[in-house]
Each structure stands twice: as C-alpha cells, then as structure tokens.
C-alpha cells in the first residue's frame, strides 16, 4: 500500500491546520506585510481569541493585557505569535484519546509539543530556522492519527509483531502494510501544502540517513523523538519499540550531555505551558 492510498481510504482525515503553511511563508518572507499576517490569523475567530489569551499570560510578562492582535504582535513578536498559533493548531489536532494506541486524552499532544520544543532548541544550537523545526516536531506524529482512522489498518496487529519478534513499530508497520506512519504523515502534509523543509524530516524520522534532502533536520527529528521518549512523554503501547540511529547523533554532533539539558528545558517549558493552558481555559 502507498501512503496516498491510505489517505484516499480514510473516510475522515484530520482537520488541516490551513493557517500554518501560509503563516510560515509570510514569516520567512522579509518583504511580507505585517498586516497580512494579522489579517490571516483573524480569519479564524477562535484562534484569534486563543492567541490573545495566551499572549496575555504571565509567560510573556505583560504589565497590561493586549486587547487586539496588532498589540499582541507588537509586544511579543511574530515568531512568538506563530508559535502560539502552531501550539493551538497542534492541540486541536492531537488532544483527543486514541484507544487503539492506548493513548489517553492530551497525551499525543504533550508528546508532539515536547518534540517541537526539543527541535527548536537543537535548531537554535545549530544556527538553523527554529520555527520551521518546531513545526516539524509538532506535526511529526500526524500519520498515526490517520492510520487509526483507517478501516482496515489495526495497530493491534503491529503490536503483535513487535512483541513476538522484538522489532520496532516502524519496521512492523512496513512489513504489515508496506507503509509507515511517517510516510502517511508526509503525504498528508504535502496535500496540505507544507514545504519539504517541514515534510522531509517527518518522512525520514526513523531512517534519517536515507533522507535525500534536509538530512540534518531528519537527524534532529530522530534524536528529538528519542529525547522526548526519555522524558516519559512517549505514551501508549510498546512506545519504546524504536530503533535508535547512531548515524543521526554523529551527523548532528551535539553531545549527549547537551541533549540532556534540552530534556530538562523541554520538561520545564511543557509544565509551564500546561499550567498556562489550564489557567487560560479557566479564565
């Protein structure tokens, strides 16, 4: 089966975070009109409300709250506004429970967000585009969402193979279906018009050495998934059934101790964001 076949056989695909690829393009274009970014966010009233609520939180240490998007953008900057938008979109996509993967409500979202944070830190250390890497991290588990909605693909079969033969989930997916969740995610993201810079690290997350382009980002993704697992955020059954590629570490060249610091930072940031969201939901 091909990834495109999986997409065509699923009755209901996850809702497209349509705002993200356009916003990313606008952010990267130094000539783009700031008003256009604001107009684009404003197309979605609930998104606008959440951006305002979060930008007014203690995290950004505002003395007086922003009452409109222009004000919020002026205070915290476009990149931070984009990260809030991406976080909210990620929450809409990933926040529900998935029984077939043994995932409780919010667990896939926490995992995705933490992966985004680790990607962002690695990108900053390596002098790469942190916002793009953050977005890749946030969306990398999308394929699992799609597969769990497929009428005949059942993760119970994958877990049986994993446990019987001690192989990784990705390898079991490939043997059983001929396609992996990473490839399904990539196909859907291409359909949603995300750029290769976002898509390829996701597509080659489990085999970064094979990425024809953006190999460094694919290695970062591989290591980020590994690192987030070490934080205990890879919930679900057989969550540790993954192959770790020493190639990725050698290619990136970030020492293990530095990765552990990323873990500590991501742990703290996630705790803060969760508290923030609970407060803003209660407000």
């Amino acid at each position: 089966m091909k990834a495109e076949d999986v997409l065509s056989q699923v009755e209901k695909l996850p809702p497209a975070p349509a705002v993200l690829p356009t916003l990313l393009n606008l952010l990267r274009d130094t000539n783009s009109d700031p008003g256009e970014i604001i107009r684009y966010i404003r197309l979605d009233p609930s998104l606008t409300a959440q951006v305002l609520r979060l930008s007014n939180s203690v995290y950004y240490a505002m003395s007086t709250p922003s009452c409109d998007l222009e004000d919020a953008v002026a205070r915290i900057g476009y990149r931070e506004v984009y990260k809030i938008v991406a976080m909210v979109c990620g929450q809409q996509l990933f926040n529900h429970s998935i029984q077939s993967l043994f995932l409780g409500k919010g667990e896939l979202w926490e995992y995705s967000l933490a992966t985004g944070y680790i990607m962002e830190q690695m990108a900053t250390d390596l002098g790469m585009d942190a916002v793009t890497c953050y977005t890749s991290g946030l969306l990398h588990a999308l394929g699992k969402l799609v597969i769990t909605s497929h009428p005949s693909m059942d993760y119970a079969d994958v877990f049986r193979i994993v446990e019987a033969r001690g192989i990784s989930i990705t390898q079991a997916e490939r043997e059983l279906w001929g396609v992996t969740n990473a490839e399904v995610a990539a196909a859907l993201l291409r359909q949603w018009r995300f750029r290769d810079e976002i898509v390829m690290p996701i597509e080659f997350q489990s085999c970064p050495a094979q990425a024809p382009k953006f190999r460094k980002q694919a290695c970062m993704m591989h290591l980020s998934i590994w690192t987030v697992a070490s934080l205990g955020l890879n919930y679900g059954k057989d969550a540790w059934a993954m192959e770790a590629s020493p190639y990725a570490m050698h290619h990136i060249g970030i020492p293990e101790e530095r990765m552990q610091v990323f873990m500590v930072n991501a742990h703290d940031k996630l705790a803060m964001v969760k508290e923030l969201l609970v407060r803003s939901e209660g407000a």
């Binding site: 690192t227 697992a229 070490s230 540790w240 993954m242 192959e243 770790a244 590629s245 020493p246 552990q260």
Partner: peptide, 14 residues
C-alpha cells in the same frame, strides 16, 4: 528505565 531497541550505547538514559 525503559530503553530503545538499538544496540548502540548512545543515549541509553534508562
């Protein structure tokens, strides 16, 4: 103390 499948010694935090 869970660990990934790989035999590599790297990042075996568990």
């Amino acid at each position: 103390g869970a660990n990934v499948l790989s035999g590599s010694d790297f990042f075996k935090i568990g």
